[in-house]
Design a protein around this nucleic acid. Sequence first.
DNA 1: TTTACATATTCCCATATAGGAATGTAATGT
DNA 2: ACATTACATTCCTATATGGGAATATGTAAA
Lengths: 130, 130
Amino acid sequence: MARAATTSDAFNAVAEPRRRAILSSLALQERPVGEIVDLLGLGQPSVSKHLRVLLEVGLVNVRRDGRRMLYRTNAEALRPLHEWTGTFERFWQHQLSRIKDRAEGKSSPSNDTPADFHPGRKHDLDRNKN
Amino acid sequence: MARAATTSDAFNAVAEPRRRAILSSLALQERPVGEIVDLLGLGQPSVSKHLRVLLEVGLVNVRRDGRRMLYRTNAEALRPLHEWTGTFERFWQHQLSRIKDRAEGKSSPSNDTPADFHPGRKHDLDRNKN
DNA sequence: TTTACATATTCCCATATAGGAATGTAATGT
DNA sequence: ACATTACATTCCTATATGGGAATATGTAAA
């Protein structure tokens, strides 16, 4: 099998650095495609295609304004990522505090297994794949 | 150009769901490969290859114990991911309060909320193979 | 209508998968 | 030495990708 589609979930979508750059540029304000092209110095078709991927996984929204399409980041779609990585937070905190604890003669605290990420609902975009 | 290598960074490495499962299973304690194979029900070569990817981006560590290789998650390598997604946190918090405000009947002064537009409702996105 | 502008889509293709089978390699046991 | 255990690597292949050029689509202006 090949790699999972970039449109399969937010994890795959943000694996591409330009898409992360696009998301950052659209977090504060919506922008037309051409502005993203100028800002990031990418080709227009390339930006359009990246936006399409982001749109399919719900990471951005669009609305039309005349002949322009205004895109905007939908931060909510990044929460699964933040929460999954957050499951590991105490492990790296542990490492930092372990040195201190050791110096203070404390015993190691409780542990629990990080959650497996449940992909949850995919967008209802893949109706076409049988 | 093709897609970036899975080994190019943590973002690409964790895009694969099995690798995320592996990371979760190794966060708490180190395990030999065979145990991961049993736990996740994957093929041994497959697990070895995933571990190799994770190792290359620093998401796991290894140490040899006799004929076994004991792997362990290095949570620290997930911090960049957590921090990057964290930069968007205030945006989804913003959205949540907006939703709450609406549910509580508070009036929203101006319409700074771009109409939520989701593709795939009107037309089917034909994702055909060429 | 004709033209210009803004964006989306198509075509082409070199590249990196991910899985399974087969095989290689290292360490241990007898 | 030989068999066994535990992993790693190689070979094979269908598939999705991302970029650029060319083209299509859609909307507004002349």
